[in-house]
């Protein structure tokens, strides 16, 4: 399978990374994808996909709060200082006036 420049730009948009067309080209994404195509020739009819090597069933625990009152700890690495001082994460405006 090969992807057009537009498709690659769409993927870059989906993962929220600004990449110029020149840089995308330099990344040689197509040569990587082309190489991945070699898997197509393998007959996997009836094979169950393996998404994890884990063989045990996941354990359950009671749904209770295990930590609390850690607001300031969570805010310590916040990039916006003004929000941090006021006790919240400040983010860019997401709604129009």
């Amino acid at each position: 399978m090969s992807f057009s420049k537009q498709q690659l730009q769409k993927f870059a948009h989906l993962i929220r990374i600004e990449i110029s067309d020149e840089k995308l080209e330099k990344m040689k994404i197509d040569s990587v994808i082309e190489w991945l195509d070699k898997l197509q020739k393998i007959d996997t009819t009836g094979v169950e996909p393996m998404l994890s090597p884990v063989q045990h069933s996941l354990l359950r625990r009671t749904d209770v709060v295990t930590d609390k009152n850690i607001r300031d700890l969570l805010l310590k690495n916040a990039p916006d200082e003004t929000g941090k001082r006021a006790g919240y994460f400040a983010v860019p405006k997401v709604m129009d006036e």
Binding site: M1, F11, A12, L24, I29, L39, I42, T44, P49
Partner: peptide, 23 residues
């Protein structure tokens, strides 16, 4: 991340990602 998004995109999910999981 671009490659990862490409192989997970709706048009290639079966062809790439699920095939890789079967292999």
């Amino acid at each position: 991340m671009v490659v990862g998004t490409a192989v997970l995109s709706s048009e290639s999910y079966e062809v790439y990602f699920m095939q890789a999981a079967r292999v």
